[in-house]
Design a protein around this nucleic acid. Structure first.
Lengths: 219, 219
DNA sequence: GTCTATACACCGATAGAC
DNA sequence: GTCTATCGGTGTATAGAC
């Protein structure tokens, strides 16, 4: 199977060349831009600073490298979301914290949103066993949000809405936005990942959750 | 260049085997599921019922086939959106018509949303000249919606929001949703493209535009 | 306009020396 | 744990007969 060395350093600061973390970083950058089928192991090896065959010592095959990249991202995001939750606030405040955390982490790691969105399409490539492991992490994250939505509806703080459809809307508002690449840059006439646009995205999402689009009639 | 025979029949009913429209239909189905790099011309040729080399008589290369598929989709969607617009209604009613049209056309053609969303990522593969042609069609469609948003804001019917960010949200709520594949099916516990869920998606989008998520305080 | 045959590069993966 | 060498297969694209 794939060797496990979970104690390796966090993404962003790599120790030695040829390390497992460096391979993951390199593969993450490439898969994010061109997808599973658009990346060759030769290119991953070259950019990671080792020979192509050496990759197979760290990962059994191309697919397990791809799955490892996805798993690291999903785990990191869930950790961020978990850390942001405080149980003392209202459902709306907790939803606000969730949006804050997910937008921050997607904005800080520009490779994540494209990779996650791609994974939805390239799910066919991942076999059932891997898929269930990845789904488990993902559903833990989504479960936190779904739980808050449910509670907010039961307390009357939120309108009565479909939880799955609302989750889809939240994913579209956050993950899709930060995965929209050059199209998003053109539309905003500003870099999607610039500090100013990230802040505006947060404000947009939250005002949409609070008010929708329509002006309330002043009565 | 690529031969033009624009008078060929609409998608769904193909005349003879080996026709240009049949190639486009086949390629559309495959590109939608596996993306540009995940599809081989051999597979397109086999399923379209001709030899691999015969494809090059209809399309100069793989990329021009891909661009032709995208262009046909964008054109078809814009036609649907254009036909749905009536200029007599309020901005909200016009937005409703737009959501109706885009959701209907995405639901009727399950290949469209995945392909459009993929095109955002695989934009690197399309060169500048092709990209500008495709962008022109896309911006015509988006321009219709942006115009309505602007008018609604100026008339006070809508809140004052960022038009580009609102467009991104609308795209996320419609195109992403119908591109979410197996993940969407799992989340809804129902087929995304089933009539019931399509209807619920429309209602969800529209109630979100009208009210957001938060319950209005009864005063 | 379709076919067979083929060119030629690159792919993922393996074998085995060091 | 990294390397060189290599395998079998497939990719896009072309040449040229019919």
């Amino acid at each position: 199977m794939t060797p496990n060395r979970k104690s390796s350093g966090p993404a962003g600061a790599n120790s030695g060349p040829g390390s497992r973390a460096k391979i993951l970083d390199t593969a993450e950058a490439l898969f994010s831009r061109r997808g599973f089928n658009g990346v060759s192991l030769r290119e991953v090896a070259d950019r990671a600073g080792l020979g192509k065959s050496s990759l197979f010592h760290h990962f059994a095959n191309k697919l397990s490298l791809y799955v490892a990249v996805l798993e690291r991202i999903l785990t990191q995001i869930d950790a961020r979301v978990e850390a942001a939750q405080e149980h003392t606030a209202s459902a709306l405040a907790r939803l606000h914290q969730w949006v804050d955390a997910i937008v921050d982490t997607l904005a800080e790691n520009p490779t994540h949103a494209p990779l996650l969105l791609r994974a939805l399409f390239e799910g066919e490539v991942v076999d059932a066993k891997d898929s269930s492991r990845l789904n488990h992490i993902l559903q833990r994250t989504l479960g936190r949000v779904a739980h808050d939505l449910q509670e907010g509806m039961e307390s009357g703080e939120f309108r009565s809405v479909s939880v799955p459809h609302t989750l889809q809307t939240l994913i579209g508002m956050s993950i899709y936005h930060f995965a929209s690449g050059e199209f998003g840059n053109d539309l905003l006439q500003n870099p999607v990942f610039s500090a100013a646009e990230v802040r505006r995205r947060k404000e947009h999402i939250f005002s949409f959750l609070e008010h929708g689009l329509v002006q309330e009639v002043s009565q």
